[in-house]
Write a protein that binds this DNA or RNA. Structure first.
Lengths: 143, 143
DNA sequence: ATTTGTGCAAATCGTTTGCATCTGA
DNA sequence: TCAGATGCAAACGATTTGCACAAAT
C-alpha cells in the first residue's frame, strides 16, 4: 500500500513534470519517466532503458525510447553525456557536475559534491561563450 | 625547391617515426602520417582524413584510414578524443592537454598551455586508479 | 475532430571485418 | 619469399526516419 502510494505519487509528479515541459503525458512517456527518475540519479543508454521498460511490462519500441530521450533532453529533463565513442548516455541529473568513467565496465558515475574544482578557465576565444564544462575522470581497476 | 626539401624531410621524419613505432612505413601510412603531422596539431575524423588523402592524390580506402588511425593510436602517435556522440576524433597532440569544442561547427581546439587547472581530484573509488582526466569546454558563438 | 505520439521496418551513418590480392623488407 | 598491409564489399551496431495507425486533448 505504501508502494501503491509511492507509485501513484511518482506518476503524478511525472505527469506534471511532462506537462510543465510541454510534453503530452502519454502512457509511454510517463512510464519511461518513472523508470528514469524513480531510482535516483542514473546514466543510461537508450538500449538499456528499452530493456528496462520491456522488463517492466511497458512494451515501448526502441524508436520511441530514442524519440522520448531526445524530447526529454530538449525539454531540459535529461542531459546527454558524451563520454565514449559510439554510445550515447543520458544523465538524469541535469545540474552541473562531473563524471567518473570506469573503463572496461563502460560505467558512468557522478562525481559527488564539488569533487572537482576547475582552477581557472582558459581565455575564451573571441566572440564565444561557454556553454558547459565537462570533466571526465577515466578510471581503471588498479592492477 | 624549399618546398621539395620540406617534403622530403617530412617524409624522412615520418618514415623514422613509423619505424620507431614498429610500423612498416608503407605508402599509405607515410602519406597519412604526413597529412596528419605536417600541419601542426590537428583533430580529425577518419572521414575527414580520408577526404584529405583523396584530395592529395593518395587514394587510400576508408577502411585503411580507420586501420591506420587505430594502429597509430596503439603506437602512441595519436590520441582518441571522445567529445561527441557518434564520431571519433583523433588528436595529433598526445601530451596532456584539454579541449575547446565549438558547438555547431563540430570543431575541436586545443586549450593552449596550462589553461585549465584542475583544482583537486575527487576521492577515487576503492581499488581504482586514474587513467586520464579529460576536460572539454563547450563553446558557442555569443548571441 | 484534430493534433500529436507510437510502432514497425527500412534507411542511414560511422565503423569494423573477411578475404583475396598486393607489397615491402 | 612471405609476413604483413591494403582494398573492397559486405557485415555491423547505434541511431533515425517515413508512414500508417492509435491515443490524447
Amino acid at each position: 500500500m505504501a508502494i501503491e502510494m509511492v507509485t501513484e505519487t511518482a506518476g503524478k509528479d511525472v505527469t506534471d513534470m511532462l506537462r510543465n515541459a510541454g510534453l503530452r503525458p502519454t502512457r509511454q512517456r510517463v512510464s519511461l519517466a518513472e523508470l528514469l527518475y524513480s531510482k535516483g540519479d542514473r546514466h543510461l543508454s537508450a538500449e538499456l532503458l528499452h530493456e528496462e521498460a520491456v522488463a517492466a511490462d511497458v512494451p515501448v519500441s526502441l524508436a520511441t525510447v530514442y524519440n522520448t530521450l531526445h524530447q526529454f533532453t530538449e525539454a531540459g529533463l535529461l542531459r546527454e553525456v558524451a563520454i565514449e565513442g559510439n554510445k550515447t548516455y543520458f544523465d538524469t541529473k541535469v545540474s552541473d557536475h562531473h563524471h567518473f568513467f570506469i573503463e572496461g565496465e563502460n560505467k558512468v558515475i557522478d562525481i559527488p559534491g564539488e569533487g572537482v574544482g576547475i582552477g581557472e578557465l582558459p581565455a575564451i576565444p573571441e566572440g564565444m561563450e561557454v556553454v558547459h564544462v565537462d570533466v571526465v575522470v577515466r578510471l581503471r581497476k588498479k592492477s
